[in-house]
Amino acid sequence: MTKAQHKRQALSQDDLITRYGYLLSVIPRGVADHAHVEVFGELSRTQREGLLEEVVPLLPEAWGAATSEDPQTLAALMRDVLPRDAMLHSEIGGAVANRFIASAPVAAYFTAGAGSVSIDQQPAWVQALIDHESNPIDAGNMHHRKGVNSGHWF
């Protein structure tokens, strides 16, 4: 299966939620916040309001007063497991998880951020997000001139 075919393959709601949870466990909170802000910003105001209508009744009363449809407020709300779980079980939870997984902040973390150091240890689906080749053609030998890797300088 090529990477293009892998990307086109539709994932189940459970798979999306599992991948979303995995990413939340390996990326820093700041990256997750940026990704959530991006994702919630892509939703229409109506979608964000609908999300709140589904999520707020499932939260303790103290949380309901602190909610707003603003993308940054929603992103901050996702730091806690209760609202995040409620969001994932909402009507658009799968779409939010899917957008989060494919978001620019997540991709940047694994291409140029600290996550790029450990990308070879990430699952294949994470590597596919950024089109990472886990097995370089030269098996790690970047220098092909005589002397650079052999210790013979002259």
Rank of each mutant, 00 (worst) to 15 (best):
M1I: 03
T2D: 02
T2Y: 00
A4Y: 12
A4H: 11
R8D: 07
Q9Y: 04
Q13P: 10
Q13F: 06
L16P: 00
L16D: 06
L16S: 02
I17C: 04
R19K: 06
G21E: 11
G21V: 01
Y22R: 01
L23P: 02
V26P: 03
P28C: 06
G30L: 06
A32Q: 06
A32Y: 02
D33Y: 15
H34V: 09
H36N: 15
E38Q: 14
E38D: 07
F40P: 02
G41W: 01
E42F: 08
R45N: 13
Q47S: 04
R48N: 00
E49M: 09
G50H: 03
L52S: 03
E53W: 07
E54S: 05
E54G: 01
E54F: 06
V56M: 15
V56K: 11
P57S: 02
L58Q: 14
P60I: 10
W63R: 10
W63Q: 08
G64P: 10
A66T: 14
D70K: 11
D70P: 04
D70I: 07
D70A: 13
P71I: 00
Q72F: 12
T73N: 09
L74E: 04
A76P: 04
A76D: 14
A76Y: 14
L77E: 05
L77H: 03
D80F: 15
V81E: 15
D85Q: 14
A86Q: 01
A86H: 04
L88H: 14
H89Y: 12
G93W: 05
G94Q: 02
A95E: 15
A95W: 05
A97S: 07
A97P: 12
R99E: 07
F100P: 09
I101K: 03
I101C: 08
A102S: 13
A102Y: 14
A104R: 13
A104Q: 15
V106M: 01
A107D: 12
Y109D: 01
F110L: 01
T111H: 05
A112K: 14
G115D: 08
V117N: 11
V117E: 14
S118K: 10
I119R: 03
P123R: 03
V126T: 03
V126M: 05
L129V: 04
D131G: 10
D131R: 07
H132F: 08
E133R: 12
E133P: 03
S134E: 08
D138A: 12
A139P: 06
G140C: 07
N141V: 15
H144G: 08
H144I: 11
G147E: 05
S150R: 01
H152I: 13
